[in-house]
Design a protein around this nucleic acid. Structure first.
Lengths: 191, 191
DNA sequence: GACAGAAGCTAATGGCATTAGCTTTATGGC
DNA sequence: GCCATAAAGCTAATGCCATTAGCTTCTGTC
């Protein structure tokens, strides 16, 4: 019997593809083993179990999302950077719905790679905010707002929560325009 | 042996409580049966199965969310209404994390109650937007933005996605302030 | 070429969901 | 008041998934 030649890497990468294809909730060790042409328990030679796989997949996905947004932000600033990062973000979520969902898991403090990937994903956001002159508490609030808006949009869109026929691209452009305006005229109010 | 006296109503309500207590992902027919003091298969006398229970729970939760936001909007307009609805929304999600997650399931077209609840939940949002003078496509875009921002915020907050110690209430106030500004000075841009 | 370790396997266990079929309890008509 | 019936509950059986244990076989190194 020839060997399948699996590694932790290939197993996680295959899990990512499977999650994107069938949905994160239907990602199962049994289905993954089937896709890899291997008996289910064999996977335990490469990952500690279903929960560990989920964590590794989250780390992978956050890292990829960080790469995508970082690349999009390179060489840009202001509204230009905001648009590019938001577009890359949404694009990643659409192209990789399973991974994007997996990425929402909060990093385990004991996994430095996952934690680092999470920080890398935040970096382009704070870079954009610096470009708008926002730092400190303002930047924290603004980052939360930016993340909330974009994440909320792609999540609701992916779930089919936007029923009406109105073009989604238009709505997303408006969302980004609103964020740009908000960051330019940052409300001084609550201080 | 005395009867438990269950009904579809009590089963779904108990499921809602259980989901809030242990988390939506850990809501299981086995756990629900245990809480109700009944053997697992007995639940099938009241609900068609796990998936049907999820759907009923979603309908219940969306209805409750609609009630909460509708009540908050009553007698208010403009920024006042926006603040009240956003607060009620966030409050519901925090008080009922399991239900809120359940509510994200898109209504089955064959379930009129669920569909109606979904429309009731949208009503206060569109009412607010009318108060800002937004109708038609503008209202659709604005509603999507509003929903994205608030839903994204409560989702990320619930998942523990906001790591930093900065006060969440402050950030949420800023979010609502940003939305208020955006709705007042609605960008005419993309048309 | 032998051996050590890794990669794979089968078998067994336990949890959950579902279906089938049985027993018992309420209840409504006579 | 009694009995028939439908509903509410039960146990038993099946199937899928995750996990663990323990065995076999491949592969690379001396």
């Amino acid at each position: 019997m020839p060997r399948a030649g699996l590694t932790p890497q290939t197993v996680v990468r295959s899990a990512a593809e499977l999650a994107d294809e069938v949905g994160y909730d239907k990602l199962t060790l049994a289905a993954l083993a089937g896709r890899l042409g291997v008996a289910l328990p064999s996977l335990y030679k490469h990952v500690r179990g279903a929960d560990a796989l989920d964590r590794k997949l989250a780390a992978l996905a956050v890292g990829e999302l960080a790469d995508a947004t970082t690349t999009a932000a390179a060489g840009r600033a202001g509204a230009d950077a905001l648009r590019a990062v938001a577009a890359a973000w949404r694009d990643y979520a659409r192209r990789h719905p399973g991974r994007y969902q997996a990425a929402q898991r909060v990093p385990d403090h004991a996994d430095p790679d996952h934690v680092a990937a999470g920080e890398r994903a935040l970096a382009p956001i704070y870079a954009i905010l610096r470009g708008y002159g926002l730092t400190g508490d303002d930047a924290v609030d603004a980052a939360r707002i930016l993340r909330s808006a974009v994440h909320g949009f792609v999540t609701l869109a992916a779930a089919g929560g936007f029923g009406l026929p109105r073009d989604l691209d238009r709505s997303f452009d408006q969302l980004v325009a609103v964020l740009d305006t908000a960051l330019r005229d940052w409300p001084e109010m609550t201080r």
